[in-house]
Computed example of a mutant assay.
Amino acid sequence: MDLDVFVAAHRDEWDRLDHLLRRGRRLSGYEADELVALYQLTATHLSLVQSSAPDPILTTRLTQLVARARATVTGTRRATWRDAALFLTAGFPAAVYRSRHWWLPTALLSTLLAAVIGWWIAVHPEVQAAIAAPEELRRMTRPGGEYETYYSSHPAASFAAQVWTNNAQAAAMCLVLGAFLCLPVIWILFTNVLNLGIGIGLMSSAGRLDTFLGLILPHGLLELTAVFVAAGTGLRLGWTLIDPGPYSRRTALARQGRAALGMAIGLALVLFVSGVIEGFVTPSGLPTWARIAIGVAAEAAFLVYVYLLGGRAARAGETGDVEAGDRSAELPVAA
């Protein structure tokens, strides 16, 4: 596309839209219709410029025009309880469901890697010795040791709040840092898997793997699922930079980024539930089977929520993105 010819052909339309916007509410019916038509036309022009001839000065001008026109045409809109309900029953579960091809393999590979690390540590005493001194290892793994007392070392409410904050931050980092070509996400995920594998290996070497799993599974099933969803979504966001699909790289990244931002809010709620379980159920005096049953029930409820509500919403066209009126106009890139 010849940018100079394009600007010359459409400058008058942009100037006219700018003039109408400056007049504000003092428009006749005909002028209001003209403003809407010019807004739609300019939004199309912006998409064409972004995909074919991304000039920063022209893009900035058209972006400002489109934003001002959209605010005038649609007006400002406040979030309502209906928006929150739609997000929880459609937007969030649909976004998780649509990204399942990323987070399910992430979960399976991470779990397998944790098991392999745990086995490797359990059968190699020299690796255990490299982790900590023998006395320190005994202090961690013995009955009433650090692995067990960790969950009851603080008041339940404050411990749950601390766990929730830490996990929510880790999930948010996975979602946000995915834009950096996936590398930070892989590191965060590996760190979590390594810590899990070390716990499995050390407790298994002490013959207390059943105790460790009895402490981890009640809250860990839901907690790790949320982390895997965040990591998978972050990896998907990073891959969008490499393969944006039918849209421009900027548009594709914006679409995935907005959905990821919504998922950060939803996953914070999921991690709140796992934090409550970790603070109140894991260190409780309930039998091991009862604590694990609570964790399994919470995990099953989340998966049903994602696959039932999310699958239904996704098939109806929900993506987890903001409403069309609240995002920039976009056009596919010609192949």
Rank of each mutant, 00 (worst) to 15 (best):
Y150N: 00
G262D: 05
D33E: 14
T44N: 12
P246H: 04
L38C: 03
L62C: 02
W102A: 14
F6I: 03
D55I: 06
A298E: 04
T141H: 03
R139Y: 06
A301C: 03
F272T: 13
W119R: 07
S205H: 12
L269W: 01
L21C: 00
A84W: 10
L20C: 09
L286T: 09
L237M: 09
Y30F: 08
T63R: 11
L261Q: 12
S51I: 04
A334P: 04
T72K: 08
L222A: 13
P125E: 15
F180S: 14
L215W: 06
A94F: 04
G245K: 04
A293I: 11
R82S: 15
L17K: 05
T282S: 15
L137G: 00
L17V: 05
S204L: 01
Y97H: 14
S205G: 02
G29A: 05
F180A: 15
R291L: 11
L104C: 06
A160Q: 03
L213R: 06
Q50D: 07
L286C: 07
R142W: 04
R11F: 05
T240S: 07
I121Y: 01
A69M: 08
A157S: 07
D321C: 07
N192Y: 13
T44E: 10
R250C: 02
G214W: 02
A115E: 12
A85S: 12
A43M: 10
S110Q: 14
W81T: 05
A84V: 11
A160Y: 06
P155W: 08
L269F: 12
A84Y: 07
T211W: 01
L113E: 05
P56R: 02
G262T: 08
W239I: 03
Y247E: 08
A114Y: 11
G214H: 02
Y150F: 15
R258V: 12
V66I: 03
H19A: 12
M203L: 05
L27V: 09
A129R: 15
S152G: 12
L221P: 14
E13V: 01
Y30C: 01
I265W: 06
L261S: 13
N167Q: 06
L109P: 14
G214R: 00
A71S: 10
L3V: 10
V322M: 10
T76P: 00
T225G: 04
R77D: 09
D321I: 00
W119Y: 14
V322W: 13
T141V: 10
R78W: 04
Q128T: 01
V163K: 14
S205K: 04
T72P: 01
A301W: 09
Q162V: 08
L209R: 09
G24D: 08
G207H: 00
L86E: 13
V333K: 14
A132E: 13
W119T: 06
L35D: 00
A133N: 10
A8G: 14
F180E: 06
G245L: 06
S204T: 07
P218K: 09
Y305N: 01
V229Y: 04
A69T: 03
V306W: 02
W164R: 02
R23Q: 15
I277G: 11
V7L: 10
L46S: 05
H124T: 11
G325Y: 06
A179Q: 09
A122W: 00
G207E: 07
V127D: 01
A335E: 04
L48K: 05
G262M: 07
H101M: 14
A8F: 03
Y147P: 00
Y247N: 04
L17I: 09
L217Y: 06
